[in-house]
Design a protein around this nucleic acid. Structure first.
Lengths: 199, 199
DNA sequence: TTTTAGAAATAAGATAGTTTAAGAATCGGT
DNA sequence: ACCGATTCTTAAACTATCTTATTTCTAAAA
């Protein structure tokens, strides 16, 4: 993972604030304050930016590229909890919010530009700019809705329907993801997904 | 569903603000403003307070009792998305936040006292008391974490482990829930849960 | 008290998903 | 262009879970 110098941060900040302003308006002064508190990272494909079992200190925003959050259980079975592409935020949220250990690892599945926001920094930013509470309220509300919808699909649909539904919803993600990863997201074996697809 | 007169609202408001203040401090004046915008309901067991397919206009806070959110798919299969007991908030959040139709129904599984907060009211309260943004930010953050953890359990654990894990985590809920409902929450048939339990 | 209905347990046959293994295709590195 | 290493497909045998049906149990209604 490479920390970039200040000169090139506009590559990160322009898309970041463009997305930010879709949710709430923000002044130049506020942008300046926020910018000064972010970290900019250029991460190659297949790099692990957070490891299961470690303390979680950073919340990531995806400027470009794609990430995957996955869990490894005692039996070595891998479960993909989430993918993130451009404009998504991702981390092990439980570990982050409760300053606890990560239950998932986070890896890039493409070369990625990320913005990192550290826990203590976010906490103090929220104090300094209460407006951010609204931003993150909206963010978490949407994240909650997303997870609840996913859970509902997991419970109420069969694999073929879940697969089609995912492809419809996130065609961009499908492109960067191996079938093995896709299967572990849907909760089936890659072999079975292969069967299902060929019908 | 019975709307209560003003005289008895303290039964609702005292537990409500006691819980509220666990997350953020709040003045008497703020309490007054919030109180004036809530609805108080006393709902008997097995009452449906929101029906799948209808527009969602209310967010519910559980003062006492218990609720269940469930979805019915085309094949008539029922999936329990969530339970809520004392101090939990519940609704079809997608329908609520996006003013869309409910994908789930909401029913009481015990006689329940609920506080209702309507969509437009919440929106204007958030304008009037920006402090509430923080409250709901924390609320949704926790809800998101909860859903993500549940999904992870769903993907990575077998039925027996999921069942034990639920009983450990929510012993109170287990008491108010039938085995059929429990099974539809865990994503298995009641018959299979019965087998699993007897081991 | 009898009746009724819904909960749960049990068991047999059906289906969805897993496992294993082997071959074909694809991809990054040299 | 070649090699080794993943990744994907296919298929057969297997296992877990589901469906359906029957029975028992329980609790509330009449």
């Amino acid at each position: 993972m490479v920390q970039m110098g200040y000169y090139s941060n506009q590559d990160y900040l322009i898309p970041f604030f463009r997305n930010f302003e879709k949710h709430i308006p923000i002044s130049d002064e506020e942008k300046r304050i926020i910018s000064a508190n972010l970290e900019f990272m250029d991460v190659p494909r297949n790099d692990v930016v957070l490891s299961q079992g470690n303390k979680v200190n950073t919340l990531f925003y995806v400027v470009s590229g794609a990430l995957r959050a996955y869990h490894l259980n005692e039996k070595g079975k891998e479960s993909t909890v989430m993918f993130a592409v451009k404009d998504w935020w991702i981390t092990d949220m439980n570990g982050f919010a409760n300053q606890d250990f990560a239950q998932v690892s986070l890896e890039t599945i493409e070369n990625s530009k990320l913005i990192g926001l550290r826990y203590e920094i976010l906490e103090s930013l929220l104090q300094e700019l209460p407006k951010l509470e609204r931003f993150f309220r909206i963010l978490f509300q949407r994240a909650y809705i997303r997870e609840q919808s996913r859970l509902l699909r997991q419970l109420s649909m069969d694999v073929a329907t879940r697969y089609r539904s995912f492809v419809d919803k996130y065609p961009k993600i499908v492109a960067s993801v191996s079938q093995k990863q896709m299967a572990s997201y849907l909760g089936v074996t890659p072999e079975f997904l292969s069967q299902v697809k060929n019908k």
